[in-house]
Amino acid sequence: MSRIIVDKQIVDCDAPILRANEDGSFPIVPELSEQGLVFVSLPQYLAQKAELTARGDVGVWFAASDEPELLGADAAQLAFIAVEFPAFTDGRGFSIGRLLRERYGFTGQLRAFGDVFKDTLNYLARCGFNAFAVRADKDIEDAVKGIDDFTEFYQSSVGQPQPLFRRR
């Protein structure tokens, strides 16, 4: 069982990320046991929205180049969204997180996966991520501390919409 960080707690979670088949077609979404969870890509979700929504055990994952605008207000109906970071230095996912939370009303679990480790967790948390699939070769116990590397911030962010200048 893999472990991830959710709300600063380390918990077990195995939720497969379904990627397109080699020919570009959508993969079959497997039947899951109770409390199971599977992430389908944004394009697959958009194509099969009705049946996937009915299942209730499906989350949506975003590639870094995916546009939150395509999901739009549907985000508010979802319980799980994951965003891929192909490299920790690829900051597109930061904007995706903020847009989902601040513009499209997503209130479920927002998970970062891919090249995720201690040193970006603080930024990610401020962009609205509350779950982190830390890279398997990194120390997850140490990584969780990175969320609180900083406890005071100048800017508006998801957790604290009021910038410092409205609070100081």
């Binding site: 920790f88 230095t89 690829d90 900051g91 930061f94 904007s95 903020r98 970006t120 603080n122 930024y123 990610l124 401020r126 962009c127 900083f150 911030f153 100048y154 800017q155 962010s157 410092l164 200048f165």
Partner: peptide, 13 residues
């Protein structure tokens, strides 16, 4: 300066 310091969204441009 303050706005740009540790701006969470623009840390990895």
């Amino acid at each position: 300066r303050q706005w740009s310091t540790f701006h969470p969204e623009f840390a990895h441009l």
